[in-house]
Amino acid sequence: MITLTRIVKRFGEQTVLHEVDLTLGEGTVTALIGPSGSGKSTLLRCVNLLEMPQSGELKLGDSHLVFTPGKPADRRAVLALRQQTGMVFQNFQLFPHRTALGNVMEGLVTVQRWPEDKARRRALDLLDKVGMAHKADAFPASLSGGQQQRVAIARALAPSPRVLLCDEPTSALDPELAGEVVAVLRQLAEEGTTMLMATHDLRLAASVAHQAVFLEAGKVVESGPSRELFSSPRQARTAGFIATLTAAAGGHGAN
């Protein structure tokens, strides 16, 4: 179980997250939806502390962090927490100077201090899982966007994180390539990987997520089982937003 309690995040004067509460059950997938600027990325980044919340609490595995304004979190606690999370970025952010295999091995070798050959075996298994074993020796620049994102997923999974954070993992991809990434994420979901993903992609959200959270202006407007939230939202704002997503998806011939 991963719990965020009353998370507040400010950038200067602007409050981007207003006391957000969020609970992720073990083995569940939660979709984070909401308009642009609503704070989805910020919330994700507060889970692995790429952004430091000003206040609130975060419980994840062995880590329990309490944030107090003006008091920086303990560096070691931050590193320990990050080792229990994996993140997939919208624009992949693979290491361009390393092969696909090197990208996946990097965390194991450098951070977890695994011996090379053990790390290589695990990395190859993961590349196989995301259908990229045949490109193990390719550099990112020679891979398609969908292939890069699948390698990035393998890299994020390498240290066996308790939660996989995905920030719009398909939105930099055209529908065809997005499809292969959705397939990988769906398979991970079926295997019981805990995930939190921000997305504008209803196909992804509907086919992978168990839970959905609708965020607006840094507040959770509505949350619940994804099927219900998408088909019969209780809040008018949620309904309105989902209508725009459906229209956009229809307009691009996706879904």
């Binding site: 990050r82 970025f89 624009n91 952010q93 100077h97 965390g107 977890q112």
Partner: peptide
């Protein structure tokens, strides 16, 4: 070097030194 490379390094658990030595400086 794009700031996303720092973030990717941090996201796999690297500390500042490791990110600098393994990701940023080679690029």
């Amino acid at each position: 070097v794009p700031s996303g490379q720092w973030e990717a390094s941090y996201s796999i658990g690297m500390n500042w030194r490791q990110a600098m030595a393994r990701t940023i400086l080679p690029q």
